[in-house]
Amino acid sequence: MIADFFEYDFLRHTFYTGLLIGIIAPLLGTFIVVRRLSLIADALSHVTLAGIAFGLFVDKKFAIGITPLYSGMGFSVLGSIFIEKLRAVYNAYQELAIPIILSGGVGLSVIFIALADGFNTDLFNYLFGSVSAVSKQDFYLILAISVIIVTVILVFYKQLITLSFDEEHAVVSGIHAKRIHFLFIILTALVIAASIRIVGVLLVSALMTLPVAAAMRLAKGFKQMMLFSVLFGEAAVMIGLITGYFFSIPPGGTIVLASIAILLIAIGKKRLSYHSGGIAYGSK
């Protein structure tokens, strides 16, 4: 059965794409989680849906071949810029940006879906992910995005972690917080767009946060947490893709359940080592 993934071209692209998003989603997710921005990822994924619906609508009505992944990415990046503006406007109520963007994204999606004469399988694939939907073009686009994400994180790792831990200190020491933050939110938009083919709009934020939540229970430092997050993310994507294919279930569902299973094991393991005299958590 696993051999199928190498035998058929479309499955091979799915498999490689899965490997890529298993790295980039949890990698960026570590920063998203420690900055308490998990819900922003969720809001952005709904804006991405609006972009995809827009692409499908334009394609259907005007027969202009916009790849929905590109329009989704465009919307996602615009949405991320808009979130930043909202967070600056409502400085004391930064979480307000989330319902505004999220509902705006869903509202736009509904309109474009209706204009394109309702649901079709393609849209269903974008919502919950698909094992067979990754085209060769999609794969190359996602590969390019992945290279960009990993490079930028490697180059800006020090600045990102410094800013995430203590923004005031970062600014005082001379780090350009606004620029780095802007870069970060753009990266988030790109990762979401890249991951949607496999996990789907509705579950993409899970792949950015659940492996990190599991890693957080076990890791001692930040670098270790990044490593564990990527390992857990990869494991979840692989298990999810293979079982999804085997049972003909959209992989979004199986990947998220695999992530939750890993999370539960991590929580259980921590409790076990706590009771057997491991590191005493909560000691101050």
Partner: peptide, 21 residues
């Protein structure tokens, strides 16, 4: 500060060099 932040003492002190590097 966020006491749940998963960073070691070494990592936190390293942050003091970020801007300089």
């Amino acid at each position: 500060f966020n006491k749940g932040f998963p960073a070691t003492v070494f990592e936190v002190v390293s942050m003091g060099l970020t801007a300089k590097i």
